Amino acid sequence: MIPVSAEHPDADPELTNSDRWVYHVIAEREPVTRQALLQDDRVDVAERTLDRALSRLEERGYVVLLRESGDLRQIVASLAHSHTSNSRQR
């Protein structure tokens, strides 16, 4: 089981600075598509880095990723508002 270290990703030692930055942009713009995040000048990370950040944030229970279709580019990210109850097992 992944330990949830705090109720906010800024205190989570398992996240990178890029992960935290992506979280904050999602918090400001939610719901936001992956494509919109890639086009946001504030995100300024490579596509692969964004995908890894989204995956880590989802695994840690900070965001929810909805797939509108089978196309992975159509992911919509929102905050998981009850993060402490969303801890997941690996």
Rank of each mutant, 00 (worst) to 15 (best):
D40M: 02
L54G: 11
V25C: 11
V32I: 15
Q35P: 00
P3Y: 12
A11D: 15
T84W: 08
L79D: 11
N86D: 08
S85N: 06
V22A: 02
H83F: 05
E59V: 07
I75S: 06
R52I: 10
I26C: 01
R90E: 14
E7K: 13
N86Q: 11
V76H: 08
H24G: 04
E7W: 15
D51L: 13
E28Y: 02
M1N: 11
R56P: 01
R52N: 15
V45Q: 10
S5L: 15
H24Y: 12
R73F: 02
R34I: 00
L37D: 05
I75E: 00
L66Q: 07
E47R: 10
L65F: 00
H83T: 15
Y23R: 04
A80F: 11
D19P: 04
N17D: 09
A77E: 06
D44M: 09
N86K: 09
I75Y: 00
T33H: 00
H83I: 13
L50I: 12
L38D: 10
P3K: 15
V45K: 09
I26L: 06
T33M: 02
V64C: 01
H83P: 10
V43Y: 00
L72D: 09
R60Y: 08
V43H: 01
S82M: 06
H24K: 13
E47W: 03
A11K: 15
G70A: 09
L79F: 07
D41E: 14
P13D: 11
T49F: 02
A6F: 14
S78F: 05
S87P: 03
V43M: 04
G70E: 00
A6T: 13
D71L: 05
R34C: 02
P31H: 04
E59C: 07
I75W: 02
P9T: 11
D19K: 03
D19I: 12
V25F: 06
P9W: 08
S78Y: 05
R34D: 00
L38P: 06
A77K: 01
V45M: 05
R67N: 04
H8L: 08
A80V: 03
D51Q: 12
I2P: 12
A27T: 07
H81S: 09
N17Y: 08
A27W: 04
L38M: 14
H8W: 13
D40I: 14
E30D: 03
V25A: 08
V63A: 03
R60F: 09
D44K: 13
M1R: 12
P13I: 14
V64D: 03
R29A: 12
H8K: 13
R42C: 02
R88N: 10
T33Q: 00
S69L: 00
L38I: 07
S82T: 14
V32P: 09
P31T: 11
G61S: 06
V4E: 13
V63Q: 01
E58S: 06
T16P: 08
Q35L: 09
L15Q: 07
A6S: 14
E14Y: 11
T49M: 03
I75C: 05
E47K: 12
L54R: 06
S18A: 14
R34T: 02
V64N: 01
D10Q: 11
R73W: 04
H81W: 06
Q89H: 09
G61A: 04
T16D: 09
L66G: 03
A36Q: 13
T16F: 07
Q35I: 14
